[in-house]
Amino acid sequence: MTEIALKADSLSVSRGRVPVLSDITFDVSVGEVFALLGGNGAGKSTTLLTFLGFLPPRSGSVTVLNKPVTQNVEFVRQKSAYLPEAANLYPHLNARENIKYFLSLAKVPRSASDIEAALDEVSLATEARGRRLSSYSKGMRQKVAISLAILRQAPVLFLDEPTSGLDPVAIDEFNQLITKLSAAGTTVLMVTHDVYGACQIAGRVGLLKAGSLVGVFEAPEGGQISPEEVHRAFAEGA
């Protein structure tokens, strides 16, 4: 039997008085990549923030590694790495200093060579690593955040539009990296607009529309989900 790492059960969430998620249910197995697709305001980021314990469920529940998030926020954050869209790390620190700072916050000690290896993995130019992030492009900053997520070696990865700002080569490298991490047992919940990217790496794709999960597409054995099919469902509202 497949072990469940993440589970949303009849989850409804409101932001203020506005209902954002309505009765959504899905789960993600250990080592699986699950992508949530949807338009603006569909509730993708809200789902991630609920799994991270930033937003309380109005009804239903979310669990991470079999622990209810509401009662185990610190545990959840310790066991997961979060990569926000356009992560603006500290502009007055360079790449290495930013990584060291956040690793220290997460209480995850890593050697200098580990850090260099992670930066190599995201192809951040060596000469840029000692420069302050204020001189970085959006894509370069995102690469630093990705390398931080790699270094965390957390069993769960929450990715919010992770390829936003990356060039096509970097997107391809990122997708390969996620596939590699997934193969090593890391569970990934990713929200994105990028239908083709999601279909390339995800084992399943969920389609969110106006706060409801309107469809789930599963990759065939040894193959990929058809982006055309997802795109059509997306356009038709499933």
Binding site: L52, F54, P84, L105
Partner: peptide, 18 residues
């Protein structure tokens, strides 16, 4: 403002305490 609050809290466990 810099879209760092959730990231900081998710990484450090408790952004408020930090």
């Amino acid at each position: 403002r810099n879209n760092r609050w959730a990231f900081l809290s998710a990484t450090g466990g408790d952004g408020g305490r930090l």
